[in-house]
Design a protein around this nucleic acid. Structure first.
Length: 832
RNA sequence: GCCCGGAUGGCGGAACUGGUAGACGCAAGGGACUUAAAAUCCCUCGCCCCUAGGGUGUGCGAGUUCGAUUCUCGCUCCGGGCACCA
């Protein structure tokens, strides 16, 4: 039952919230203006996928963003605070199949519903800039960017292994393969070689890594995750001659210092030279069936646990270019084709994987780096030694320290033309092709005569077929729709076929923040003038689950758009706040756990302001927030107390009048002081680290002072001016968190202005200063007494007072005083 | 395995650059108002000891310091990320 039905003491949040939401919307209060007299501030929350309805995570994310937006407006900034929809993606296809509807229909219905929910929360968005990425007016520009990237050689095609379901005739993302079977039809998934489009993100690897240093407004955690994801390694790449063969086997190592300890070579099962090695080879059949087996195993295991190390001798040898030593070549299941060269020089003495492999197959262990204070002996080593040390048995390099030897050996390789230093990244190029319907079509055409041809920019957008064919599934992939893919070649005019893959939905979210700066611009993807006015985003807020992919892709796109001439920035997000999850009963809210709290219910029962207030008050933004129903009631109670106070004192507050400091009585002085202290602290809490939880606490303290000072009949009464000062400031300080509530109370006591027109209050340092201080007296570091002293006391006087203090003297008890430490205006410590 | 975080009352959380531990809220207990309940208001609230008062206390163990939740070293537990990356 709604609380406001049962008691007239409760303020009518429904009426108030509706009133102000309508007011803001019809007045375009939050339209971002082109006001060059004000400094710009762009605050952005990660836009939602229109899944159906908002959840508590959204409420938290958007409340945080809204407080920042509103705070910055009060501070006099020209604020851009837009919202939109990341609206391509698989759930729409699933829902369409389930409801026999169309993905577009489902998506736009959800957007309408969720937009309404966001409005009910009173979020101060500039709705005139709203975008939906599934709209051709958005993806048209994405297709143009794609073509310009193609032009610049940042896009290319290649063939890779993908998960394929035979019955659904589609590629599946890794997440859609459940225990080796298709999630939709249970058919066993197969590995298939498929052609796809890739973005050359690796071309930007070095810059993406280096520029992390510029991001001092990002959490260290996210920086570290990105750094690890890019995974830069520096080392030696060199070639081993294959015995009785013209080919060479190229390897990459970060430990060139151990090259004299190589006792065998491991190559990946997919290594391209493997077939060459097996020509006219008696072991060929055995090796081939082994290779088949481990490829199967890899597929089944996916990326999960480590499998046991396995391998097989190919019957062939290669020679170490440094000492000519012949070493056997093995195929090993732990060597990745996708990293380095797909071949690894094996040094069992100094690499744990090689060690285990050598032990299993009885291969030699040859230590060549002796760490200080050890005496490695191959015979009794139980694990690899990975410590640095002095090189032994390494010809002319023996005696060198391993760190120094790394460079010396690389130099040697370069001089003798057997190898060179090399940098390898863990980061791979970004495969963007998806064999799905509900995504942005890739604007390319295949002509038998002319090959792959880009769609002409004037012919964009390449739109998704919207027809709902009764015979077909409404979201059948594009390769099943002749009317879509049959076209003519832009070059020769002959018959040709469109690319039928759509883009990964991460592409849309990689540049939407830039499109918000000119969302209706019709000449090109971005209006450069607007983009450079607003970008970079000053404050970006979202879940840490996007720490790697979305943020990395957005950084990549920013650099690409810069190189295409659209942007003049290197990094998109100046400051990043990763908010914690909303938890209930110790777990993330989820349908399967049955611990979800629906924001709709909260808004119905307590109103948007209370809902926002609780989500801001219960924890600092970066930490997880534990749901507590009683805590929401506490927040509701707080707002009601303020409401009641303002109602009862309305006449006095309106009468208000000017504050004359000289004539304040002691109670008035105390409230005046508390007001200014509160302004100072709340401002500090927001400025420093967006700790709204403590900011709200401060406002609560102010209100507690106000109500106890005004309620105490024993004391001198408070005049209207000082109450008015306290309330006016309290409302502004609280209004970023509870905007409707504060706007309404403000309007109740001011006829000539709205709260939005106000400036953030400033504090008077003089007024905020305490005139009495509590000084702690310690004896040997333990608190023994407290003294009330005038605020302007000096150290000498303080020391004198402390040494006369009776409760402290008790603990000195005749002992000699060795030292007295006085901390200005804080404490005196007497050491005996 | 490697790399990041974190640990403070019954609970969520405060504590500026080392200087009164527990702000604010929740819960709990007591009281006022009420025929009663709800709402509201007031008081108490880390633990231990016999009160005045004292002892003890920020995951554990050391250290630096007049003084450590805060700094250093060594652990334990929890959370997250990456994971055969050569």
């Amino acid at each position: 039952m709604a609380a406001n039905d049962t008691s007239s003491d409760f303020y009518d949040f429904k009426a108030i919230e509706n009133k102000w939401q309508d007011h803001w919307l019809s007045n375009s209060t939050y339209r971002a203006s082109v006001d060059s007299s004000k400094e710009k501030y762009y605050v952005l929350e990660m836009f939602p996928y229109p899944s159906g309805r908002i959840h508590m995570g959204h409420v938290r994310n958007y409340s945080i963003g809204d407080v920042i937006a509103r705070y910055k407006r009060f501070q006099g900034f020209n604020v851009l605070h837009p919202m939109g929809w990341d609206s391509f993606g698989l759930p729409a296809e699933n829902a369409a199949i389930k409801n026999n509807s169309h993905p577009a229909r489902w998506t736009y219905d959800n957007i309408d519903y969720m937009r309404d929910q966001l409005r009910q929360l009173g979020l101060s968005y500039d709705w005139e800039r709203e975008i939906a990425t599934c709209n051709p007016k958005y993806y048209k520009w994405e297709q143009q960017i794609f073509l310009e990237m193609y032009e610049k050689d940042i896009v290319y095609q290649k063939t890779t292994t993908v998960n394929w379901c035979n019955s659904c005739e589609t590629v599946l993302a890794n997440e859609q393969v459940i225990e080796g079977a298709c999630w939709r039809c249970d058919e066993q998934v197969q590995a298939r070689e498929m052609n796809g489009w890739f973005f050359k993100i690796t071309d930007y690897a070095e810059e993406l890594l280096d520029d992390l240093d510029m991001l001092d407004g990002w959490p260290d955690k996210v920086i570290t995750m990105q750094r690890n994801w890019i995974g830069k390694s520096t080392g030696l790449q060199c070639a081993f001659d294959i015995v009785d063969c013209d080919e060479k086997l190229s390897i990459f190592t970060t430990r060139p210092d151990t090259i004299f300890g190589v006792t065998f070579m491991s190559i990946a099962a997919e290594h391209p030279l493997l077939e060459t090695l097996l020509q006219a080879n008696p072991l060929a059949d055995e090796v081939r069936s082994f290779v088949k087996l481990i490829i199967e195993e890899k597929k089944e295991q996916g990326r999960e646990d480590l499998t046991e190390k396995k391998g097989i001798f190919t019957g062939r040898y290669c020679s170490n270019p440094f000492n000519g030593e012949k070493v056997p070549i093995f195929v090993a299941n732990f060597v990745l084709m996708g990293y380095g060269t797909g071949a690894v020089m094996a040094v069992p003495a100094h690499d744990q994987r090689d060690f285990e492999f050598a032990k299993k197959y009885g291969l030699a262990v040859h230590p060549v780096v002796q760490p200080a204070g050890t005496d490695l002996d191959a015979a009794d080593m139980e694990e690899a030694s990975t410590l640095p040390g002095i090189l032994i048995e390494s010809e002319s390099f023996s005696g060198m320290h391993s760190e120094e030897a790394k460079q010396a050996i690389i130099d040697f390789a370069r001089q003798h033309n057997i190898g060179d230093s090399h940098i390898t990244y863990r980061l791979r190029d970004w495969g963007i092709s998806r064999q799905r319907y509900w995504g942005a079509p890739i604007p390319m055409i295949r002509c038998e005569k002319c090959g792959v041809q880009p769609v002409a920019i004037k012919d964009l957008p390449v739109t998704l077929p919207q027809d709902l064919d009764q015979e077909q599934n409404s979201c059948a992939p594009l390769h099943q729709r002749n009317s879509f893919f049959e076209t003519s070649c832009p070059k020769c005019g002959g018959s040709a076929q469109r690319e039928t893959d759509t883009m990964d939905t991460f592409v849309e979210s990689s540049w939407y923040f830039a499109r918000y700066t000119s969302p209706r611009f019709t000449d090109s993807p971005l209006n450069k003038e607007e983009a450079s006015r607003w970008l970079p985003v000053d404050q970006y807020i979202g879940g840490v689950e996007h720490a790697i992919l979305h943020l990395l892709y957005s950084r990549f796109f920013t650099k690409v758009l810069r190189d295409l001439g659209y942007l003049d920035i290197d990094e998109p997000f100046k400051n990043l706040l990763t908010q914690g999850m909303v938890i209930k009963d110790g777990a993330k809210m989820s349908k399967s756990k049955g611990n979800v709290v629906d924001p709709n219910d909260l808004i119905q029962e307590y109103g948007a302001d209370t809902t926002r207030l609780f989500s801001l008050f219960a924890a600092p933004p970066e930490k997880d927030l534990e749901w507590n129903a009683k805590g929401v009631e506490g927040c509701s109670r707080f707002l009601n107390r303020i409401h009641r106070f303002v109602s009862t004192h309305k006449e006095a507050i309106i009468a208000g009048g000017e504050l004359t400091i000289a004539s304040l009585n002691s109670n008035e002085k105390e409230l005046h002081r508390k007001t200014h202290q509160t302004i100072k602290r709340v401002t500090g809490n927001i400025e420093q680290n967006f700790h709204f939880n403590t900011a709200i606490s401060r406002v609560m303290e102010l209100f507690n002072s106000l109500s106890s000072l005004s309620g105490d009949k024993q004391k001198e009464s408070l005049g209207p001016a000082v109450i008015r000062e306290a309330i006016d400031n309290l409302l502004i300080l609280l209004s970023p968190m509870t905007p409707h509530f504060c706007a309404e109370l403000w309007a109740n006591i001011h006829t000539d202005s709205t709260i939005e027109e106000q400036s953030w209050p400033t504090w008077d340092e003089e007024a905020a200063r305490e005139d009495e201080l509590t000084i702690v007296i310690q004896v040997k570091g333990k608190v023994r007494s407290r003294l009330q002293v005038p605020a302007d006391i000096d150290d000498a006087a303080l020391e004198e007072l402390a040494l006369k203090d009776e409760s402290a003297l008790k603990f000195i008890d005749g002992q000699t005083i060795k030292k007295v430490i006085v901390v200005k205006k804080k404490l005196v410590n007497i050491v005996v």
